[in-house]
């Protein structure tokens, strides 16, 4: 397949950046999206050009590194899929694809498609943990957890912190990410002692990072590779309001 790419190129944080067109001729439908970029990069290296910088790690859909907005959709058109698990068979010969980095002030561009997501780390540092030593995994029956709570906590815990929610949100809000972390710990017994302080600290850190406010548009859920539900935002708001009383 012949694919035309319009890729965001930016030399560094202070560079203005621009979209550059590349034609990739020998794309196989079996390639993943990242493998297609690898082919482009190998060619760029051979011709002495600077390869396109992009984040990637596990390439099996669980690490959340492959941050790129493909034709305006974070992680591309396939629902509940990371970029690395998107395959070129979803495109056809002659297609033009625009690739941009996550666009959010708290995620500054490092180079090309790579953004700095340390803002998420700082939100976790503000309270996304349990300070008491929880020891090794307890026997399953020693600390009963209601089935609904266990399911909801697990669903929230599947968040891989990729930042697609922020990238898709028309407000640039990090409510889905922060909500997922608060819900995950807030539903389990181990998370109870610090529950309210956690919600307050994490929400305040989220705001301090410069993320926008949530207006419940649901754009985040539509692009989340793990299908995190909008319900986590309701739970975050409930805990935050209680903690502010």
């Amino acid at each position: 397949m012949k694919i035309t790419l319009k890729v965001w190129r930016q030399k560094g944080p202070s560079d203005k950046g621009r979209l550059v067109s590349y034609v990739v001729d020998d794309v196989s439908p079996d390639m993943s999206f990242l493998e297609m970029l690898d082919v482009l990069n190998e060619r760029l290296i051979l011709t002495g050009d600077d390869p396109v910088a992009f984040d990637h790690d596990c390439r099996e859909g669980i690490c959340g590194m492959c941050s790129m907005v493909i034709d305006g959709t974070p992680h591309g058109p396939q629902r509940a899929t990371t970029t690395c698990q998107l395959h070129m068979r979803h495109y056809k010969d002659g297609d033009t694809i625009t690739i941009e980095p996550w666009r959010a002030a708290p995620f500054p561009v490092v180079k090309d498609l790579v953004v700095d997501r340390s803002a998420f780390d700082r939100i976790i540092q503000a309270g996304g943990f349990i300070s008491v030593p929880a020891g090794s995994a307890p026997d399953a029956h020693s600390m009963p957890v209601a089935k609904n709570d266990a399911d909801d906590a697990f669903d929230a815990a599947t968040c891989i912190g990729c930042g697609a929610c922020v990238a898709a949100c028309p407000n640039g809000s990090a409510a889905l990410f922060t909500g997922a972390k608060i819900t995950h710990l807030g539903l389990l017994p181990q998370g109870q002692p610090e529950r309210m302080a956690r919600a307050k600290a994490m929400v305040e850190q989220m705001d301090a990072e410069g993320f926008g406010g949530c207006t419940n548009t649901g754009e985040c859920v539509a692009v989340c590779p793990k299908g995190i539900s909008l319900d986590v935002i309701g739970r975050m708001n409930a805990d935050f309001l209680k903690s502010s009383k």
Binding site: D71, G72, T73, T217, E219
Partner: peptide, 23 residues
């Protein structure tokens, strides 16, 4: 706040996910 959180806009128009209805 939304404007400040996204100073650089996307060049590509979103296709499938974004009805942008609520906004």
């Amino acid at each position: 706040r939304a404007g400040k959180a996204r100073p650089v806009k996307y060049a590509a128009r979103p296709k499938a996910h974004a009805s942008r209805y609520a906004t």
